[in-house]
Design a protein around this nucleic acid. Structure first.
Lengths: 171, 171
DNA sequence: TCGGTTACTATCTTTTTGCAAGTTACTATT
DNA sequence: AATAGTAACTTGCAAAAAGATAGTAACCGA
């Protein structure tokens, strides 16, 4: 009755989580977006064990978020610089920082976003590109995209049915 | 020379990741934001093992993102409904979906955001609340918040120094 | 009474994490 | 020349977490 699981790899969230979804990857990206590039900088910044860091960096390089670049021959020294794909992850990190400062920092923020230059604090919000209307549960849903599989369509149909049912008998 | 690690718990990213940072939590939230509420709905939606699901749900309830509500006495049946804190995670999920559709779906999107009602597709962007300017690596930095510790200030000073250095000798 | 539903727990195996230590290849200092 | 330091890792191993499978408890409906 309920849709079989739409293949895990089809959901964009699942893909994102498979790429950057472990604990450390997000923190490493966060550091990188703040300008860190070198192995020992990441290592010391979070106190991550070097084997973990090596694994995560390898994965992130393979995923195309970092480029491993030789910056010094003899001895070979590498740094990890963000690709365009990596840099474009910033909005997600920004949204996460916004969320954390709203809900997970009752005593006040320790870190916030600011305009580069003026240092004017920024509060991040996620909006629809076309209308600039904020994205909320009440105003926005998900729909099938052009490449949606049959399974995905079934799943969305199921969710829509559930939603209609709860609206009839709200609480 | 380099700052000792600012305590892990102080970085908003680290807090967010500690709360919702595992693989499954984000996917469960994603489902919940689409309207699923019941144990077996989550279970079938992703094919998650029931022990895992129970653990994750417990954690999310303890973190205040879900409320476990009895919807049927005898036999006791519970559903998991999002709290305000849980619903406010939607912008982060939306940003993630946007990222995944841009960079991780070369063949095209299977799932996209849309206006509730009109079903008009929406592309999510993260902007500064005050100016509505998009948040990018080039235009936005992080600065210390009012509650920043000494360690955090040191860390940011280090990052700023690094950045100044790379600007002098760019590549 | 037999099967089905819902919401789990229990057990066990596999995988991942993370600490500690070691390695390689240099440069800089004494 | 010997020692110390830096940078970027790798290796080995114990502990923790994940994940598959199976079982339980309380009902309902035919």
């Amino acid at each position: 009755m309920q849709p079989g699981l739409a293949p895990l790899t089809e959901c964009p969230c699942a893909r994102a989580v498979a790429t950057v979804g472990e604990w450390w990857s997000i923190l490493i990206l966060c550091d990188a977006l703040q300008g860190l590039t070198r192995f020992d900088e990441f290592e010391r910044s979070r106190g991550i064990a070097p084997n973990m860091l090596a694994r995560r960096l390898k994965h992130l390089v393979e995923s195309g978020l970092f480029e491993r670049r030789l910056y010094h021959e003899r001895p070979k020294r590498y740094e990890y610089i963000l690709t365009e794909k990596g840099r474009d992850f910033f909005p997600v990190v920004a949204a996460l920082i916004g969320y954390a400062n709203r809900h997970l920092a009752p005593e006040g923020a320790s870190l916030q976003l600011a305009e580069r230059g003026s240092e004017e604090p920024i509060i991040p919000i996620t909006v629809a590109a076309a209308t600039l209307q904020p994205i909320t549960v009440d105003s926005v849903t998900v729909i099938a995209g052009p490449q949606a599989s049959t399974g995905m369509h079934e799943r969305l149909a199921f969710v829509a049915a559930r939603e209609a049912a709860t609206r009839t008998k709200p609480s």
